[in-house]
Design a protein around this nucleic acid. Sequence first.
DNA 1: TGAGATAAATTTTTT
DNA 2: ATTTATCTCA
Length: 779
Amino acid sequence: MQQAYLNGLNERQKEAVEHIKGPLMIIAGAGSGKTKVLTSRIAHLMHSGVDSFNILALTFTNKAAAEMKERVEKALGNTEARNLYIGTFHSVFARILRAEASKLGYPQSFTIYDTDDSRSVLKQVINDMGLDDKLYKPNIVHNRISAAKNALVGPAEYAMDNFLKQEDARSNRPQIAEIYASYVARCFKSGAMDFDDLLFKMHELLRDFPEVLHKYQHKFKYILIDEYQDTNPVQYQIAKLLAAVHENLCVVGDDAQSIYSFRGATIENILQFQKDYDDVKLVKLEQNYRSSKSIIEVANHVIKNNKGQIPKELWTDNDEGDKIKLVRTMTDNDEGKFVADAIQENKLRNHFLNSEFAILYRTNAQSRSFEESLRRAGVAYKIYGGLSFYQRKEVKDFIAYLRIIANTKDEEGLKRIINYPARGIGKTTVEKCLVIASEQNITFFEVLEKAKAFGFKAGTLTAIEEFVTMIKYFQNQLTKHNAYDVAVQVGKHTNIVKELFNDKSTEGLARYENVQELLNSIKEWTESPSNEDGEQGDKSLGAYLQQITLITDSDNDNGNEDTVKLMTVHAAKGLEFSCVFVVGLEETLFPSGMSVNTREELEEERRLFYVAVTRAKKHLWLSYANSRYRFGQLVQNDPSRFIDEMPEEMLDKSSAGGGARNQSSSGWGSAYDRMHGGNTRGWTEPKQKSSSPSTASKPSYLPVTPPSTLNKNHIPSENFVAADPSQLEAGMKIEHQKFGFGVIKEIEGSAHNPIALILFDKNGEKKIMLNYAKLSIIP
DNA sequence: TGAGATAAATTTTTT
DNA sequence: ATTTATCTCA
């Protein structure tokens, strides 16, 4: 008798699902039903008598974890699935580390430092060591340390590693090892772990505490890892340790979709898996159920340009589908306009919902032009990525109070709020405290507690004592009340809520609302019966804080909104849409200019393109702009080399927008458009020869397009002359290059940075910074 | 100590 | 073009 969850699986998929004992590796091509196999497999395990408490599934996003849990629940038709341990590497390990924190010398409610916190610590370390922060940029140093942690290289190993030493010497940053050691010490002193520590410390815990290892080895008898191609060495080593007794480790991945090597991920893990276990069952899923034949053919064709791929050929039974539409526009704004137009047209013609469209780009910064065009067109959209809710200033400030209440050692949190709202404890005092803390080897907060002993001015001392009393009061409240009640008290006592409420500016209003939303989220979390991860009970403030640090934007998505989705290709991993626009296909952008120096980097960009293309089910558009704004400057880019790697006969080329005249002809393949589309391939020859790094990375100097064609909103007059800001006065008629004609209503701002309030004929009222914008006076 | 002006960096991708 | 860091002056 066959179980329901086995219905609709193909032979390969069934093979993977029904394999219970021993190591299993599933190479799952894009759209080959990977999630279905994973969830069916979990259902099958449970149906075969495996206790749900003994199954661990690790994913890369909370969303993927939630989806998996939901689907297993559906497949089984009971609530057993609630006992499954499903979550991201980071959140699962954070929870375990919370339980075992004392063994590693951390407080139970250790703080999780996000990237900003980490960078801030590094900045201080670099300063304290008297190093040049132009050379030791916190960003670069952080990447270096992060890479080390992900490769299981601690500060001591780092200092002894000749290869790393040489690399650092070559880049003129020989002291990274010292910074690393100091950074680690500082985080530890603050009772804080950064993102990488959640992995690194987890490994340390299992490596150094056999009884802990034993406990979790027997808890997690069956382990599944999703997106295996994106795991890094620490993650693999942890999995290996956990699976060492039962060896029931199932990994699912696709080497062609490995796109996180910058985070230390390595497809080496796929090869290593087969070396580490000698009886690996290997299943390849090559049938794609998602996309049309055209889309699969193009994707296959492109990825063949990569050298080191595991041999496999993705195929599909689906319809042939439309050709891939390749569109060239003049500017990034035209690109935005074109996409908005195409979405509206297709909604009408094919009755698509907004939610069936996705716009995928290489960098978050590209979202702007699409945002504008969609807003203008009245199409509902949602942007994913960028900074998350919990990283906004006002939210993070508020959270900092909670962080201090949960963990007074948290230095970064304390620095954030010690003088927010202003209470007369300024920079000088903070500096002094930090020096004392370092000299006496006590924490920042302990200095505040013992402030009397360190000779502060009377006023300062009072301020400090009041602050300490307040924090202790909150901590005391926490023993009697839940996290939400305490958070409300924080809002009241500190006056933060009132202060934000009284700020009636637009931004102030938004800030007030954000803090309210934060309070709501705490309330919701406090009152929900069991938290998202399925762990019973732990409703403490510390648990809440550890959880929210790991939440990303896309996790908050309920998926029910009918909106066009805008996101980076990275964020789109694992998702699918009927209609996909892959935009900004230009050299230096996609592939990124940062990633064309080595074959490995370029191949990862190509895999990224492959991921982008394979998100589409039915319709795929690829677009690029002749020129776009970057750092406020108009730059020209060649079309992406990936365009050239696609079979020409599969493409339906056109150009759109650009000319102010023929707006209506976002035309599909008029003779004129074809000609222009065809022309874009003119550069093919020289570009392919230039595979040597020296010529490949050189910018090309193409004739600059006259500015008159750049903005379709307004074409500047022939005799446009930018006026000196000092010549401008209220009441003058002016012309703006972009916004057209208007009248200056008022000039405000300082003499050095004058700001004009201008009423434009077509674009309404705008504030223009005269030092940047060019205005021509109309007599 | 804090506001305001000036200089400088920013854009790879994320837990 | 916009945001962030640093500096200057009240």
